[in-house]
């Protein structure tokens, strides 16, 4: 690690001020990415602003068919929340699959989606459920939030306050995990709300995306058979040590079918 100023503000306003006043401020929302990066001396922020002390950023509420999860809510809290398990069990299921117990006890939903790791799990749920990201400045719909590899629509210093998930009729997440890291080699989140179907794919490409052709097929017939033979174009998929683009393309189809089957129970 290089030297940095460590700040632990008590509320969101103080956090935003601290970020604005820092030469090169970096929010820390659990530290599951930034701490390893710092330890490897791959980043040199002037200030690390730990959001862990801001109480009103965490917690889960459910109202009017929407589950709202505070940005600093840990994966474990989502995975074990009675409200989430009751309203969107697929979301709790996804949270329970992230990393390992250490990661789940420290990592947060806000940290995960702000980082937008191409192999992270949460982006698939946010996009696959058509969630809305609330920040200190505005609301951003899922389809506009994830923009590119490790890139989001967030402006410099903009702070996620919570993520609002509409409760679907049916949903499920299936992922094929990387055996070393447990990140998704390919993960597919499907949801159906009335006639509206969403299929979000993580791990396969540089950024989470929706599989439009599968969505159309499933909108007419929400059944694994409906997407038999409907693949995704994997031309630009990640091709690395962990999986070839070809294998990822194949896995997306398999995970999508299995997710639909799982959603149907």
């Amino acid at each position: 690690m290089y030297e940095f100023n460590f700040q632990r503000p008590a509320n969101s306003d103080a956090a935003i001020d601290a970020q604005a006043n820092a030469e090169d401020g970096q929010y820390m929302a659990g530290g599951q990415t930034i701490i390893p990066v710092l330890k490897q001396r791959l980043a040199m922020p002037s200030d690390v602003i730990d959001l862990g002390a801001i109480e009103d950023l965490s917690g889960i509420t459910i109202a009017d068919g929407t589950v709202t999860i505070g940005a600093m809510t840990t994966h474990t809290d989502v995975a074990t929340s009675g409200d989430v398990l009751g309203a969107i069990p697929a979301l709790a299921d996804l949270a329970s699959m992230i990393g390992d117990p250490h990661v789940r006890n420290r990592g947060t939903i806000g940290g995960s989606i702000a980082n937008n790791d191409p192999a992270a799990d949460y982006p698939a749920a946010v996009l696959g459920l058509g969630a809305t990201v609330h920040t200190n400045q505005r609301t951003i719909i899922a389809d506009e939030f994830f923009t590119d590899l490790f890139e989001t629509a967030l402006d410099e210093g903009e702070l996620i306050t919570n993520v609002a998930f509409p409760v679907p009729d049916q949903a499920a997440y299936m992922k094929f995990p990387n055996p070393a890291s447990r990140y998704a080699i390919a993960g597919v989140f499907v949801s159906r709300t009335g006639a509206d179907v969403r299929v979000a794919v993580t791990g396969a490409a540089t950024c989470v995306f929706r599989a439009a052709e599968m969505e159309r097929a499933l909108a007419g017939n929400f059944n694994p058979d409906a997407i038999e033979g409907i693949g995704v174009d994997g031309t630009d998929f990640n091709n690395d040590l962990h999986a070839s683009a070809e294998y990822r393309t194949h896995l997306v189809s398999v995970m999508a079918k299995r997710a639909v089957a799982k959603a149907l129970g």
Binding site: N178, S181, L241
Partner: peptide, 11 residues
């Protein structure tokens, strides 16, 4: 060494 961390070397 491509597998230089526990993220890439699967134990």
């Amino acid at each position: 060494l491509v597998t230089g961390s526990l993220i890439d070397y699967a134990l």
